[in-house]
Design a protein around this nucleic acid. Structure first.
Lengths: 202, 202
DNA sequence: AAAATTAGCTTACAGATGTAAGCTAAATGT
DNA sequence: ACATTTAGCTTACATCTGTAAGCTAATTTT
């Protein structure tokens, strides 16, 4: 095995170890270099061969999480083509992601309002990408007036992320309730945005 | 001065010190007992005469923050009586709070999605009180159907809190934009919730 | 084949942290 | 008045942290 391959493998081990150590009780900021290194199977100081900082690791994790989000949106689109109900399908897809990758979602949630400004910016950027893609979709595929699409998309993402956050701590059937509630909220929003053109300002 | 008075005074000093040490770069979990004690002007171990834990301190802070929130809502109501525009007035009142008490608001924001389950529950409870009061108001004073009031209130609070979070990092004129955007979003919601009675389910 | 690079290791250190043990002195209770 | 309680202090300790210094051995380069 080549040296570059080995290095990449260790790098992944570090990233995976970090994701694995995140939990409901442990955010990224309370991860320690030593623990991550231990779980990755390397000596503490070897960590520095791959990342200058824990911060650099963290930003890498956020990047990966953002990537997953965007893949999610495309997956939802495929499902919509076969299913029809846009809002319901999207939310259900999202909920599956949250439940199945809770560590990833929690990372975004926490660092969005965390103590590190660079982290906050990184998360904000990922979510903004997500919003922009959704806005595009709304413009093309729904009755939403073009100039409202972005604002509507942001509101929708806000509500859905919040629902996801609630779902993290919830039992499966409470999760269903949350899904229901969120669907209602998004429909109100879509309805309002579609039928409110007459009053664009103040 | 009586002993009880002195004790209460020190207790306040601790609470104030804790609030003062919160910052954009420092959340509650990264506060250290020693630093708080230092700022409060007592020895590290004296802290334990007032709180069993740092956690106990933290929950006290969350309680105080929740109290402020509820006072805020009443203040907004007074203003509405004199001003008229419900949504605009409410959001502007909220934004003033966020800017003027950023440490308090940040505490709620962060611990809402933080690593401590008790903290998350405490914050969730405070926000839920806030939602319930708002729902009451919507039922009494607006065209919102009774059974939708709670769900609408929750969506509104979600959007407004999110706007507050964005405003924390924003420049004053970006803050105005955010306020504007949020007003639009809340109007859509109100509009949708009011005119959507025909389709209560699915 | 020799030289250079580098992924990873071991050892070592200084600093901060939470908290236990035991003291002092002032306010309280009787 | 004396006895009790207690707010706060000082000292001490074990633990965990990030990271610096210097080594080894294997891969790459020349």
């Amino acid at each position: 095995m080549t040296r570059a391959q080995q290095k990449e493998r260790t790098r992944r081990a570090i990233i995976d170890a970090a994701f694995a150590q995140l939990s409901p009780d442990k955010g990224f900021s309370s991860l320690s270099l030593r623990e991550v290194a231990r779980e990755a199977g390397i000596a503490p100081t070897s960590f520095y061969r791959h990342f200058a900082d824990m911060d650099e690791l963290g930003l890498t994790l956020v990047d990966e999480a953002g990537l997953m989000l965007r893949q999610l949106l495309r997956q939802a689109r495929h499902r919509i083509e076969k299913n029809g109900s846009v809002i319901r399908t999207s939310i259900e897809t999202f909920m599956e992601f949250v439940v199945g990758n809770s560590n990833v979602f929690r990372l975004l949630l926490r660092e969005r309002s965390g103590t590190s400004a660079p982290f906050r910016r990184a998360v904000a950027r990922e979510i903004q990408h997500f919003c922009a893609e959704l806005a595009d979709y709304l413009r093309k595929e729904t009755a939403c007036p073009d100039e409202f699409a972005q604002v509507q998309a942001e509101a929708m993402v806000t509500l859905v992320f919040h629902a996801g956050a609630d779902a993290l701590d919830a039992s499966p059937d409470l999760r269903l309730q949350i899904t229901h509630k969120t669907i209602t909220q998004l429909r109100w929003l879509a309805h309002g945005a579609a039928g409110y053109g007459r009053r664009p300002k103040e």
